[in-house]
Amino acid sequence: MTPVSHGSKDDHSQERAVPVRARSHASRDAIVQGALALWRTKGFAETTVTDICKAAGVSKALFYVYFARKEDVLMEMEVFTMRDAHLAAQAVASRPYALADMIKAVIEVLERNMRRYPPELVFEAVIETYRSERRALAGGATDADLAFLFLDPFQQAHRDGRLPAEADVARTARVAQMLVADGIRDWAAAGYTAHPLAEPLAQEISTLIDGR
């Protein structure tokens, strides 16, 4: 059967939907920005959902429409930016390179982005990432599902002969990602350091991969 057209009724529904979606995005953004402002001044542990709602000018009921916990707001803040990291890896792969060069480029992007946030917030983001991965593993996730940071770059490196032909690319990418997470956690726990994170960590990971 041919669907029945409702004429202008559908048109008016679409017109109403646009501002509703706009308000929805505005409320979500207000929650994220309110939380970030509080975390910068009050710290993550001392900030409650009530505090965030007051800062954002929303009700707790609306908060829970978008987020189950304040940790979920943390994961919205894109402390770890995958898209830019992958673009940096692609730029490295466009010229002669070693695997350590690609790893360093990815970590450098993360390092630059993380320095915009308080160390405590980055530390909490790493811990929440661990929890998220644990839940994913309990649900049957594989190395390929979880190796989002290095899977695409390492697949390229494998095609380019920078990884052994027999390498398990997904597993190698997962191991590299876990090492980066541990490195970031320690770096953030120390309040960041004057020394760059990317180069020594990239060399360590590359050496371990070569040893495998």
Score class of each variant (00 low, 15 high):
32 V>W: 10
88 A>R: 00
33 Q>E: 14
123 F>P: 00
189 A>E: 15
8 S>D: 15
206 S>N: 08
203 Q>L: 15
146 L>M: 04
43 G>N: 11
147 A>L: 11
62 L>T: 13
208 L>Y: 09
4 V>P: 05
35 A>I: 07
6 H>Q: 14
158 H>W: 09
137 L>T: 06
2 T>R: 14
25 H>C: 04
3 P>S: 15
79 V>G: 00
100 A>S: 14
86 H>I: 07
95 R>V: 05
176 A>E: 05
159 R>I: 06
23 R>C: 07
150 F>W: 03
204 E>T: 15
133 E>K: 10
85 A>P: 00
101 D>L: 10
181 A>T: 04
200 P>T: 11
98 A>I: 05
43 G>W: 10
183 G>R: 02
40 R>E: 15
19 P>E: 11
193 T>S: 10
184 I>Y: 04
152 D>P: 02
155 Q>F: 09
185 R>E: 13
100 A>G: 01
155 Q>L: 12
199 E>W: 06
205 I>A: 00
142 T>L: 07
191 G>H: 13
196 P>M: 12
12 H>M: 14
70 K>F: 03
43 G>M: 13
152 D>N: 09
100 A>K: 06
106 V>P: 06
106 V>Y: 07
79 V>N: 00
145 D>Q: 09
114 M>I: 07
63 F>T: 00
75 M>F: 05
190 A>V: 05
81 T>N: 09
66 Y>R: 09
40 R>Q: 15
184 I>K: 00
28 R>A: 10
39 W>F: 13
188 A>F: 03
97 Y>D: 00
211 G>I: 11
97 Y>I: 02
88 A>H: 00
105 A>V: 01
14 Q>A: 14
60 K>C: 02
2 T>H: 13
41 T>M: 11
158 H>Y: 07
100 A>I: 02
175 V>Y: 01
157 A>H: 06
105 A>I: 03
154 F>I: 09
72 D>C: 08
201 L>I: 05
161 G>R: 06
